[in-house]
Amino acid sequence: MKKLFCALSLVIGLGNVVAQDEYYFPEQNAIWEEKQPNAIKMNTKVLEEAVAFAESNEYSGSRDLRIAILKGFEREPFHQILGPTKKRGGPAGMILKNGYIVAKWGDTKRVDMTFSVTKSFLSTVAGLAEDKGIIASTDDKVVDYIWDGTFDGAHNSKITWEHLLQQNSAWSGELWGGKDWADRPPREGGIDDWKFEKPAVPGTEMEYNDVRVNVLAYSLTHVWRKPIPLVLKEQVMDKIDASSTWRWHGYENAWTEVDGLQMKSVTGGGHSGAGLFINTEDMARFGLLFLNGGKWKEQQLISEAWIAKAIAPSAPNVNYGYMWWLNKKGDRHWPGLSEDLYYAAGFGGNFMVIDKENDLVVVTRWLEPSKIGEFMTKVNASLN
């Protein structure tokens, strides 16, 4: 197996020279190299306890994700399944230290829905667009690129790419039959109280809203002039030697015309079906790419400048960047863990965690969502 090193400094102790930031990158279709935790400065027993915790705290929703989705979003008016779903497997996960597997559980090759983890992949497609000059700046107004009426009007015309990426756009309208006001309604008040509520000023209030995320996917489809899954495949997944098993779906009716060609506009999540279907190992590869600052082996795939923007706190929510959750001191802070840690999170307990301070990538699937902070605390305790 080929080993590549990004040695930033050397620590000399007890006669040994230990390279810091020594990252291993698995080859395509090869066995991913594993190391015993105690051989790479982790406590084996404590790490085993963390894995056992993940295995014993499976997400309580149905394994038939169609049922879980309908139950989980039953409060939404007009909610229905619009794209494909798939029955899920049991708890699964991988923990990487410097790129090596130090722990894994469940079926890591099984392809499952990943729900809003998809958003972090969508954000990356936007980053590639800025890196390549397809979008000049995320500060640009989207109406200057998408002029088909999607961003017309005094309100929507103020929306920038950054607003869409930080989920504070307050975009108002309907896409693929989904109405922005009907997505994740507030817990208090009836339809008449919030259906006609005036949208917030773009950039001032974060509202987790899949309709607006799908507007971002639609807009990126048009500026790239090709299907978003193809962009991700060519620009990232093939280059990190991901498997050929992942799929990115859109709703059944989500077709748009670009340059005379019919293209499917994908979703940024799965709460009406669709989204990214992917296995644990491919998620871990994607996480390793971000751990290494967007570089895979010797090739810079995503700029460090983009990653810095993507994980910078937004003004309305210190715990949210460009579709990445941030472990800053706020409502979603995990006490005792690095404040530089960031992660993707999806319905049903899908998590992809990047901990640069400790050279860790943690992927855990179908963990009861309320247990993720406790799980990560246990993982952190295994570090010597």
Rank of each mutant, 00 (worst) to 15 (best):
E74K: 15
K3T: 12
P313L: 11
G177D: 12
V201M: 07
E162V: 02
L65N: 08
E357L: 10
N292K: 11
T138D: 10
L261W: 06
E22D: 15
D359E: 14
G133D: 01
K295L: 00
A345H: 12
F121I: 13
V51A: 02
I307S: 04
Q80M: 09
G346M: 03
I67G: 00
Y208R: 07
H222A: 05
E234A: 08
F115S: 08
A315D: 13
G177R: 12
L122P: 05
G106A: 09
P77F: 01
D282Q: 07
Y251E: 14
N214D: 15
N168W: 11
P202M: 04
I69G: 01
S60A: 02
G269A: 15
E58I: 00
A103L: 06
A68R: 06
H249P: 00
Y343L: 08
D152E: 14
E298P: 02
S172V: 10
A182W: 04
L289Q: 02
E339P: 01
R75H: 11
L65W: 13
G127F: 04
A284R: 06
I40R: 08
A30I: 05
A52F: 00
G346P: 07
W296G: 08
R187A: 11
D21L: 13
F290K: 07
R212L: 02
A274C: 15
G293E: 05
L291G: 03
S370R: 14
T364Q: 10
E130Y: 01
K71Q: 11
G153V: 04
V231C: 09
M352P: 00
R187M: 09
Q300R: 15
E55Y: 00
V318R: 12
F196E: 08
W296N: 03
E281Y: 11
V318H: 03
S9M: 14
V363H: 06
M42T: 02
K132D: 05
V223A: 01
E257Q: 10
W255I: 12
M1L: 09
D359K: 13
S172M: 10
W255C: 05
G270L: 09
V258N: 11
L232N: 02
E33K: 14
W324Q: 02
D193H: 05
R110H: 10
A30V: 11
D144L: 06
F121K: 02
P186S: 07
K309E: 13
I31G: 09
Y100M: 04
K239R: 15
L341M: 15
D355M: 00
G346Q: 02
V142P: 03
I278E: 10
E130L: 05
L175V: 12
D259R: 09
N57F: 00
T150M: 15
N319F: 06
T204C: 04
P335H: 10
A242Q: 04
L367N: 01
E205I: 10
F286D: 00
G149I: 12
F115D: 06
S244D: 15
P199T: 03
M113K: 03
K41N: 05
V258C: 09
E34T: 12
V17H: 12
G330I: 05
G173W: 12
